[in-house]
Design a protein around this nucleic acid. Structure first.
Lengths: 338, 338
DNA sequence: CTGTTAGCGCGTTCAG
DNA sequence: CTGAACGCGCTAACAG
């Protein structure tokens, strides 16, 4: 049953050609005649040879493997990022291994340690929410291996950060509402100590300025953007009555606000237009009238992995840098309703 | 920058203990004194030793790695299966590598070949829709490595197939509608040459028998269960008028039928109750009144991986077998609506 | 262009 | 209980 594996020495012996030549032929080296190459490849196929990547990796100290570490693959956003990563990796001849931190710092540390043991060539990571220090990542770096952060930025030195242009996305979202005729646009904003939410607020403010709309501080709600916050803000919207548009800095709060508004009989989109960030198809399904800014996850995966692979191949150390992806996708609200 | 990696020989040299002893200590062998073990472990930690798994694997010819090959991870069902696989794998000390076939036979063949090269110890697979022959899998098997199929069954010899108990699931679904008072329950059935759909139809029929409801062939619609089929069947339902319940053998057709019915002003669940299979959260969101039978994906992942790992560890060859998971989750329709 | 030699880092014989 | 020596399968470096 358990057939013995064929090695290059088996081929070497059968053909009376040295194993190093066999190795070179199998790696398509140009230091072997086309003719002998053909003979070797034919015999290899005939014998059912399957390269032992382990041995090769040990020798070359390279695995041609990159790892993607992220909170969980069941989130549509991350699954789509992976698709982008895999496309580039395949083109460049790299394997991808996927690891879920489940947003646990402990798990993340174990994963990184495991990746070091397995000698992956580089890591793409969206750090866990719990992650407080970066010793584990510094450790990986100290062996000369690159790390690229995506989605969740990180202040670790010598690393590339890939993210969307939050300012521009917000600007576009707000402009979209203005062009639809909204005048009193509320903004669900996140904590301003987080750079990302500051940028989103600035985009909102600048769009209003461009259209010469006075800024009304009472329309700006700062919170943690949780589901509960969404409901609280929805209640405020009902009290205020003057609001005719809403730009939420994330989709969680936007969705729960909409659900609450609906339950109170406020019609969407007739009474209010909404724009929020959307990472998965649920937001689109729950409320077809919800216009969303989709993060170009596929793009992000492609960009992140090509950055990483280029660092691996040029053995270059980069300074800390932030790469912004500007191609955003606005999904227009469809007015079909159930 | 690029710090040199510590090997067991470095530890050996510093401590004046032979590297073979160091190796044994690091593997927690009982052929080393507790005392020297402690000294070695301490020094290893101090020097920042990280085991070179590649070398270890090459020597032992085992990678402690299993692969999951599936169509695409962005489907919630598969992502959940992976979660289950990972839990068991972690408990048993195995790494998991995830590969997406994207339902392409060509990709699947490449993946398997790559997995052989990388000497994974076993494969968990939900075969691609395009897969017609199993030579690539037989090849993997021929090296003495086990394969476990899940979700999509396969006739390859000496393999375990893990699936849900489709008959029971269907029976329960239909019974659920009967208990809600439905009398005229339509069934969206799949092609009867596919075992799975036959089982689902049988469950439906037997539930009706149990409740002494006459079988009305005009309520049974056989199709490919696509979105288009869903709409076609919805139209027939409207014509017929007598239907008050629907059990669909998959969720795709059920969802599109519901959307169509809604657009025609047929109210759900007042006028009609529906049960369908649900693999992702969208179905639950699109229509809260939709009662669904969730495949216990997490369970399936756990069962499949523990089967696989037990085969790896006992080097046992199994006969072809079919394992059914009977714990099904009925998600009751919630009557809250937007 | 091809053969020879050596060794990647580890685990496993054997001896002792 | 520990040490010496070998080899897993492959490839880099050097000869020829």
């Amino acid at each position: 049953m358990s057939q013995k594996k064929i090695t290059i020495h088996d081929i070497s012996r059968v053909l009376g050609i040295d194993s190093s030549t066999v190795s070179r032929a199998l790696n398509d080296s140009d230091r072997v005649t086309k003719k002998t190459k053909e003979i070797i490849l034919k015999k290899a196929k005939e014998l059912g040879y399957q390269r032992n990547t382990l041995a090769s990796n040990l020798r070359t100290n390279k695995t041609q493997t990159i790892a993607v570490v992220l909170p969980r693959i069941s989130r549509y956003f991350f699954a789509t990022v992976i698709a982008g990563v895999e496309q580039i990796a395949q083109e460049k001849g790299y394997n991808v291994i996927i690891c879920q931190s489940l947003d646990s710092f402990e798990r993340e540390k174990k994963i990184i340690s495991n990746l070091i043991s397995n000698r992956v060539d580089g890591i793409l990571i969206s750090i866990s929410m719990e992650t407080t220090d970066y010793e584990h990542l510094k450790n990986f770096q100290s062996f000369g291996n690159p790390i690229v952060f995506f989605d969740r930025p990180c202040t670790l030195e010598n690393c590339v950060n890939i993210n969307i242009d939050n300012y521009q996305a917000s600007f576009l979202a707000t402009e979209h509402l203005l062009q639809k005729g909204c005048q009193q646009i509320a903004h669900f904003s996140g904590k301003q100590n987080i750079e990302l939410y500051k940028q989103r607020k600035n985009g909102y403010l600048d769009a209003l300025k461009k259209y010469q709309i006075d800024i009304d501080e009472s329309l700006i709600f700062e919170s943690n953007l949780s589901e509960e916050d969404g409901i609280i803000m929805a209640k405020k919207i009902i009290e205020t009555k003057k609001i005719d548009g809403l730009y939420a800095a994330n989709d969680t709060s936007a969705i729960s606000a909409i659900q609450y508004l609906k339950s109170e009989g406020i019609k969407i989109p007739k009474d209010i237009a909404v724009v929020g960030f959307n990472n998965d198809p649920i937001a689109a399904v729950i409320e077809p009238s919800l216009t969303t800014i989709n993060q170009p996850a596929f793009q992000m995966g492609k960009k992140a992995s090509s950055q990483l692979i280029s660092q691996i191949e040029h053995k270059s150390t980069v300074n800390q840098s932030f790469v912004l992806i500007s191609e955003l996708i606005i999904r227009e609200s469809s007015n079909k309703s159930f």
